[in-house]
Amino acid sequence: MARVVTDLVGAQTKEGVRVVVGCPEGGSLSRQAAAAGAEVEVWAAERELGPHVAAETRRAYRLIRRVDPDVVHVHSAKAGLAARLALRGRVPTVYQPHAWSFEAVGGLTARLARAWERCAARWTDRVLCVSEAERRTGERAGVTARWAVVHNGVPETETEGRDEARAASPLLSEVPAQAPLVVCVGRLCRQKGQRILLEAWATVAERVPGAWLVLVGDGPDRRELTAAAPDRVLFAGASDEVDRWYAAADLVVLPSRWEGMALTPLEAMACGRPVVVTDVGGARECLPPGQQEQCLVPPGDAQALADAVTRLLGEPELRDFMGEAARKHVRADFDVRRTAESVLRLYRELLDVPAPRGSWRAGQ
Rank of each mutant, 00 (worst) to 15 (best):
M269P: 03
G142T: 08
L128S: 09
R345V: 14
A304H: 10
G26V: 08
A83M: 08
R187S: 10
E199P: 08
A304N: 06
C119N: 13
L344N: 12
I64C: 03
V127P: 03
A332L: 10
T159A: 15
A248T: 00
R195W: 15
D320P: 13
E39K: 08
K192A: 03
R232T: 03
T13E: 07
A306I: 06
R244M: 04
V72Y: 04
A77W: 07
P176M: 10
A77H: 09
E156M: 13
A249P: 00
I64K: 05
T226K: 13
Q32E: 15
R3S: 13
G314M: 04
A362T: 14
L254I: 01
W201N: 02
L128Y: 08
P69G: 03
V309M: 02
A55C: 05
E315G: 07
A45Y: 11
Q364Y: 15
T278S: 04
A35G: 07
S256I: 02
S173D: 15
D243N: 11
R140C: 13
M261I: 03
G193N: 04
A302G: 06
E267L: 01
T137K: 12
G300M: 07
L254F: 02
P255S: 01
L49Y: 14
R338Y: 13
E285M: 02
V353G: 11
V353C: 14
K328H: 15
P69E: 08
P51H: 11
S131A: 11
T203E: 14
A262H: 01
R319Y: 08
A228P: 06
V94W: 09
A308Q: 04
H329E: 07
V105P: 05
A283Y: 08
G153F: 06
D125F: 07
R207W: 12
G219A: 06
C129N: 12
G290E: 03
G142S: 05
K78M: 05
E164W: 11
D218A: 10
V252L: 00
P299L: 05
N152W: 00
M322N: 10
A104N: 12
I64R: 03
D240C: 06
P289F: 00
H75Q: 08
D320Q: 14
E224Y: 08
A115S: 13
P24T: 00
F321D: 14
P356E: 07
V182F: 09
A86M: 05
E285H: 01
D231L: 10
A54Y: 15
R348W: 12
L296Y: 00
R348L: 13
V94L: 12
Q194C: 05
R273L: 04
S169K: 13
V19C: 08
G272P: 01
L108N: 11
L63M: 09
K192I: 06
